[in-house]
Nucleic acid binder design. Structure first.
Length: 437
RNA sequence: GGAGGCUUCGCCUAGUCUGGUCUAUGGCGCCGCACUGCUAAUGCGGUUUGGGGUAACCCCCCAUCCCGGGUUCAAAUCCCGGAGCCUCCGCCA
C-alpha cells in the first residue's frame, strides 16, 4: 500500500490550507483522516489476533485429545476474527488510497494564491520586435509554416482528426534540429539522455499524479489498461520505482525524449489554429532525483537551463510563478517560461519547471539511503523543448518580410548550415544540391 | 498468438513433491569488533522492506518468499487468476 499520511496527521491545517489555495475539496482532508483512523484500528486488531493465532499454530501440532480439540475450537474463532479485521483494513486502505489520489501536493508558502490569471511575473528577457517599425505585418505561425511547406494541418485533420498535424520538409528538419540541439545541451549539463516508453501501466500514471484532477486529459487504452503518457516525466519518474538509491549517487539527472499525448479535454475552442495546442507532440524533458533539502535549489537550476535554452533560441520570454490553482497535483511550486507570440500579442507557455518535492517519490516508492536511514527523495521536472510550441515561437519571432524565417545560430549546425528557411526548400540537403549530385 | 520452464530477505542459493519451532539455509558482498608491521588472511557479531508500540534507544508485535484471490485451525509449500523473465514455434518493422 502506497500510503504516507504523515504530514496529514501531523499538520492537517496546512493540508486544508493547501486544498483551499488549489481550489479543491477541503472536506477530503477529514474523510482521509477518518479512513486513516479506521485503517489503523482495524490494523492493530488484526495484529493482535494474528499474534494469538500464531501462538496456537505452534501448540496444535503437539497437542492431543481434548486439549487439541479445545485449541482447534479457539483457533476457529480466531480465524474468523482475523478474516473480519483483515477485510475491514483492506476496505479502509482502499478508501484512503482512493481519497489520497485526489489530494495534491501541499503548495509552497510563497506561491501566489489564486487561479490561472493570478501568476506573478518573476523576470522578463529579450526584446519584442516591432513589426510596424520594420514595415511589414507579422504572419502567424500557420501561415508561415504552410508557405514554408513545414506544417500541414489539413492533412493531419484528414488522417487523424483535429489538433493533429504533419511536420513536412524543413518543418521535419526543424524538429530534429531542435531535439538534437536540446539533447546536446542537456548532455553537456550532465543529464543522461533517455528514450522512454510512451505507454505505461496505471501505477506509473497514478504515482506521478496524473490520474487525479488531470485524468480527463489522459488517453487510456482500455483493452490493455495502459496509458499514453502526456510527458516523459511519467516514465522517467517511474524509472526508479520501488528502488532505494544511495545518497551519494544523487542528484540523478535524466533528459527524456518521447512523444506526448494529450486529450486536451475542456479546451474546446482554445488555440484551435495551427499547432500551438495539439494531441500529439514530441518533447525533450529534464527530470531530477535529489535529496529533499536540495529541491528548491535544483528547481532554480532547472529554470536556469530553460532560460539558457530560450535565450540561445533568441526568443523574447518571461518567467512566471504559477498561482496555486493552476499547479498540477504533483507540484508544490511551478515556474513557466512564456515566449512572446507576436500575432497573439501575448506571452504563451513554452516550458514549465515543477518542484514535486516528495509527492511522486512517496507514491512510486523511490527512496534514498543515507547511512542507516531510508527516506523518500524529491523529484523535479522541467521542459527543455516542447517541439510544436517552440516551432510556433521560432517561426513568428524570426520571420522576415516575404515569409522566410531566420534560423538562430544554435540550430544552424543541425539544419545543414541553413541561415534562413525559405519557401520552396523541400528539405533536401543544400550541400547535395550545391554539388549537383 | 501457441507450448514449456522459471521468480525465495543486495547477488547466488537450500527449502516447495510429503502444509505446522521456516522465527527461511548456506555462500558472496557489505558494516562493526577482535587479532595482526601494512595489506591480505582469520575469528566473532550484524546485514530485506513496510507498518505499529516507545519521548527516544534497546527491544517487542504484525506483515512481507513476484502480485492478487482461494482452501485450511495453520501456506514459501496445495488450488485458481495475473505479472515479469527465459527457451522454442508462429507472425512481424
Amino acid at each position: 500500500m502506497v500510503i504516507d499520511l504523515r504530514l496529514l496527521r501531523e499538520d492537517p491545517d496546512r493540508v486544508r490550507a493547501s486544498q483551499r489555495a488549489r481550489g479543491e475539496d477541503v472536506d477530503l482532508v477529514d474523510a482521509l483522516l477518518a479512513a486513516d483512523e479506521r485503517r489503523r484500528s482495524s490494523g492493530s486488531r488484526f495484529d493482535e489476533l494474528r499474534a494469538e493465532q500464531k501462538r496456537l499454530g505452534r501448540l496444535i501440532p503437539r497437542a492431543e485429545g481434548d486439549e487439541r480439540a479445545a485449541l482447534l475450537a479457539r483457533a476457529g474463532e480466531l480465524a474468523a476474527g482475523v478474516k473480519a479485521a483483515d477485510a475491514e483494513r483492506d476496505e479502509a486502505d482502499a478508501t484512503a488510497q482512493e481519497l489520497l489520489l485526489r489530494l495534491g501536493n501541499p503548495v509552497h508558502p510563497d506561491v501566489p494564491v489564486g487561479g490561472e490569471d493570478d501568476y506573478v511575473v518573476r523576470e522578463t528577457h529579450g526584446t519584442i520586435r516591432d513589426f510596424d517599425a520594420e514595415g511589414f505585418p507579422a504572419l502567424d505561425h500557420l501561415e508561415l509554416g504552410t508557405r514554408l511547406g513545414a506544417i500541414d494541418v489539413e492533412r493531419g485533420a484528414k488522417v487523424s482528426g483535429s489538433r493533429f498535424y504533419y511536420l513536412t520538409g524543413v518543418g521535419a528538419l526543424l524538429e530534429l534540429a531542435l531535439v538534437n540541439a536540446a539533447i546536446a545541451r542537456a548532455v553537456a549539463a550532465g543529464f543522461t539522455p533517455m528514450l522512454t516508453p510512451a505507454l505505461v501501466k496505471p501505477r506509473a500514471m497514478e504515482g506521478t499524479g496524473f490520474l487525479g484532477q488531470a485524468a480527463d486529459d489522459v488517453y487510456h487504452l482500455e483493452k490493455d489498461d495502459a496509458y499514453l503518457v502526456g510527458t516523459s516525466e511519467v516514465p522517467l519518474a517511474a524509472y526508479h520505482m520501488d528502488e532505494i538509491l544511495p545518497a551519494e549517487r544523487l542528484p540523478l539527472r535524466y533528459a527524456g525524449f518521447s512523444p506526448c499525448f494529450r486529450r486536451e479535454a475542456g479546451s474546446y475552442g482554445k488555440d484551435t489554429r495551427g499547432i500551438f495546442r495539439v494531441h500529439q507532440f514530441d518533447k525533450v524533458e529534464m527530470f531530477c532525483f535529489v535529496a529533499p533539502e536540495e529541491a528548491e535549489a535544483e528547481h532554480e537550476r532547472l529554470l536556469g537551463w530553460e532560460k539558457e535554452w530560450l535565450t540561445a533560441l533568441e526568443l523574447p520570454f518571461r518567467v512566471i510563478d504559477v498561482a496555486s490553482g493552476d499547479l498540477g497535483a504533483s507540484a508544490t511550486r511551478k515556474y513557466d517560461c512564456e515566449a512572446w507570440i507576436p500575432t497573439q500579442g501575448k506571452y504563451r507557455e513554452l516550458t514549465s519547471a515543477s518542484n514535486c518535492t516528495e509527492f511522486q517519490a512517496r507514491r512510486l516508492r523511490v527512496r534514498m539511503r543515507e547511512g542507516k536511514t531510508t527516506r523518500p527523495l524529491a523529484t523535479l521536472n522541467g521542459t527543455l523543448c516542447a517541439v510544436p510550441r517552440t516551432i510556433v515561437a521560432l517561426l513568428e519571432n524570426h520571420q522576415l518580410a516575404g515569409g522566410a524565417v531566420r534560423v538562430p545560430e544554435v540550430l544552424r549546425p543541425y539544419l545543414g548550415g541553413r541561415e534562413v528557411l525559405e519557401p520552396g526548400d523541400h528539405g533536401s540537403d543544400p550541400a547535395a544540391g550545391a554539388t549537383g549530385s
